[in-house]
């Protein structure tokens, strides 16, 4: 595996949702869910994408997979710009990139058996020549995620949350993808089950040379699983860096406060907490200049006027903040 080979490159990606009103459904405004983000994922790594609810991280994930159509921007994957693919080419490309969802209850069709759920991608892409071969493949995949073949005939409601999430992982694996976008894959699970799924994902990454985009709001989980971390706030990336860099030396004030806000499971651990004022503003009418300025403890005059540039401050440590520009 070549170091630093980019598997996925996102350039100036935007996703706006129209807000419609009135009898004629006129578009009166846009929710700028993802507003001009640029980043890349290297082959074989895990990029953690963190942010609070409504920051656009899930929308970003779905837009990259073209489950939502991008408003603007480029999505380069294995030398192709996904935005330009037609329906047929896109369907073919789906074998290469898969998604795992948050809710293990909503993400499995309640009226299909496990064999049909995991076998569906095999059917769609004609990956098996006979019914027997298909079922063997399904049993194989189930085995890799730690479920025995005896479960094949069962329906999703007969499983616990953790087992369902394994089924969701198996379905994604069935097409043998190179990239998996995991959208909050453990946040709906019980604490003692989360570790099982995280470990499984790490094992699979090694065994199948997978690259992950791991979307989550839980920074401890992201820190554990990621190689690099990207932080989103109100549709924008505010900071992207190597995990260690980001957690040891966060440059953006938002990242700093986010890190300090995490409750630590150690009563003897003392931190200096930066408590942010106020709430996340609405993405329909985001603040001018730097979107974080109304809550930023270090906001200056320029912050409300000029949007800071997202740039590299050395060793691929990207950030967007006027404070850094002065240095």
């Amino acid at each position: 595996m070549a170091e630093d080979e980019k598997l996925l490159e996102i350039k100036n990606l935007k996703k706006y949702f129209p807000v419609k009103e009135g009898v004629f459904r006129r578009t009166v405004a846009h929710v700028k869910a993802v507003d001009d983000i640029t980043f890349h994922i290297k082959k074989g790594e895990t990029l953690g994408l963190v942010g609070e609810s409504g920051c656009g991280k899930s929308t970003a994930g779905r837009t990259i997979l073209r489950l939502l159509e991008a408003t603007a921007g480029e999505i380069w994957f294995e030398g192709k710009n996904l935005v330009d693919l037609d329906k047929k080419e896109l369907r073919e490309m789906r074998k290469e990139m898969q998604i795992i969802f948050q809710d293990p209850y909503a993400s499995l069709n309640p009226r299909m058996t496990v064999a049909d759920i995991v076998g569906e991608p095999i059917d769609i892409h004609n990956l098996a020549s006979s019914k027997k071969e298909r079922n063997e493949k399904v049993a194989d995949i189930l085995d890799t995620v730690g479920l025995g073949p005896e479960y094949m005939k069962r329906y999703p409601h007969e499983f616990s949350g953790g087992q369902r999430q394994r089924i969701g992982v198996a379905r994604a694996l069935a097409v043998d993808p190179s990239l998996i976008i995991a959208d909050e894959p453990v946040s709906a699970l019980d604490v003692s089950i989360q570790a099982q799924v995280i470990n499984l994902m790490q094992d699979l990454q090694k065994d199948f040379d997978l690259t992950y985009l791991f979307i989550a709001h839980d920074l401890s989980v992201v820190k554990h699983i990621s190689d690099r971390v990207a932080v989103m706030y109100l549709g924008k990336l505010v900071e992207v860096a190597d995990k260690k860099e980001l957690f040891d030396d966060p440059k953006h004030p938002y990242t700093q406060s986010l890190l300090s806000a995490i409750p630590v499971a150690d009563p003897t651990y003392e931190t200096e907490r930066i408590i942010l004022e106020g709430d996340v503003p609405s993405p329909v009418d985001p603040p001018s200049g730097c979107r974080f300025h109304p809550r930023c403890p270090y906001a200056m005059d320029i912050c409300s006027e000029v949007e800071p540039e997202f740039k590299d401050y050395g060793d691929e440590h990207f950030a967007a903040c006027h404070l850094l520009e002065d240095e």
């Binding site: 489950l67 074998k95 009226r111 769609i124």
Partner: peptide, 26 residues
Amino acid sequence: EEEFVIAADALGAGDFRIIFKHVILN
């Protein structure tokens, strides 16, 4: 909007398959 329908889309399922296997049955 259910995730299992989006999942089928992500797998490359055609509209016909999604409508019959995932939407109508539910």
